[in-house]
């Protein structure tokens, strides 16, 4: 057990160094001459995050962009990778699936999360009720894979079923069904897994936002004769609009990037692949990093509409203020 002390010491040192660094920044910012104070504050507050982001994400993003125009041996091959992406037979299916994912997952998980957050707000046992929906988020990915195998598992007719859904089907007198093998339904069954996970995220964030809506406003609406639904639509919803945009955006981006669900449950077979899964497969399985990088760029293009939307929301917010 002696290792614990040594490890914790490392942690304490790291935290102390970090605290010293932040303290130093605050000191410099505070002592800055009045004329440059705003400028130095901006630099001081932003610099640590900016440096980390430049090194950790911007630089790799730039190298990835270059990589997208090279072949597996590293030679520049123009737009060949993009030609390949759009000429392979499954390309359109993969893109179609990605679109279905990015539309359905954010909508469904945000709706379920919001509904749940509202319904259990102030309910007895709120903490436990929240933990139940939060749990899928907290479970490891391997765990989630097995969980859904136990739900979708298939055995032929007449054999004892091991999957919950097929057991229900058989109990109702239906034939068992291979949920994951038949397109396009299988994509929906995979999406359900992602919704199941992400609802916990939207529920936690939205619940925190709902608690931030001033109670006076809700009460005022009630005194004006608004029913609960009207109170929700007219007071709560506008009050958490910012959080809703954040949740929708975050889940959309997470969905665009998700590949582990597809990879572990169908490996992209049976017409279930999505762009992020192809990216992973090409870069790390097939030894074609150029194609993987090209697919990453396509993901980037797909996220642009969301970026534009957020920029507009931001501008509106600034105008109101």
């Amino acid at each position: 057990m002696d290792f614990i002390g040594e490890k914790l010491l490392q942690v304490v040192i790291a935290l102390a160094v970090f605290a010293a660094l932040i303290g130093l920044i605050m000191l410099v910012v505070d002592r800055a001459p009045k004329s440059d104070k705003e400028k130095i504050t901006v630099i001081g507050f932003l610099a640590p995050a900016a440096i980390l982001l430049l090194v950790g994400l911007v630089y790799p993003a730039v190298t990835t962009s270059f990589l997208a125009f090279t072949d597996s041996s590293g030679k520049v091959n123009g737009v060949d990778n993009f030609v390949w992406i759009f000429t392979q037979p499954e390309a359109l299916v993969t893109l179609r699936n990605t679109v279905i994912w990015t539309v359905l997952v954010p909508l469904l998980s945000t709706s379920f999360g919001l509904a749940y957050a509202v319904f259990i707000d102030k309910a007895r046992g709120e903490k436990v009720l929240k933990a139940l929906v939060f749990m899928p988020m907290a479970i490891s990915f391997v765990g989630a894979g097995i969980i859904w195998k136990l739900v979708y598992d298939y055995r032929g007719p007449g054999i004892e079923q091991t999957g919950v859904l097929n057991a229900l089907r058989v109990a109702l007198g239906l034939d068992p069904k291979q949920f994951l093998l038949d397109a396009p339904g299988n994509t929906i069954f995979l999406i359900i897994v992602m919704v199941w996970i992400q609802t916990g995220f939207s529920m936690v964030i939205l619940s925190a936002a709902i608690k931030g809506v001033p109670v006076e406003l809700v009460e005022a609406a009630r005194l004006d004769g608004a029913n609960p639904w009207q109170q929700f639509v007219n007071v709560t919803l506008p009050g958490i609009r910012g959080a809703l945009v954040v949740v929708l955006t975050t889940i959309t981006i997470a969905t665009l990037k998700v590949f582990d669900i597809v990879r572990t449950m169908t490996a992209g077979n049976y017409d279930t692949s999505v762009v992020a899964n192809e990216m992973y497969t090409q870069a790390f399985r097939a030894g074609e990093p150029g194609r993987g990088a090209a697919l990453a760029l396509i993901l980037f293009l797909l996220v642009l509409p969301i970026v534009v939307y957020n920029a507009r929301v931001l501008r509106q917010q600034r105008e109101i203020r």
Binding site: G268, N269, T281, R285, A286, G287
Partner: peptide, 28 residues
């Protein structure tokens, strides 16, 4: 090569068992 041996060959087997013909699978 990895693109075949640990990708398209596996995937080919899967679509073959799932109903595709031997010719279709080997072509792809």
């Amino acid at each position: 090569p990895g693109a075949v041996g640990s990708n398209s060959f596996w995937k080919g087997i899967v679509s073959w068992i799932n109903g595709a013909s031997s010719q279709e699978v080997t072509d792809s």
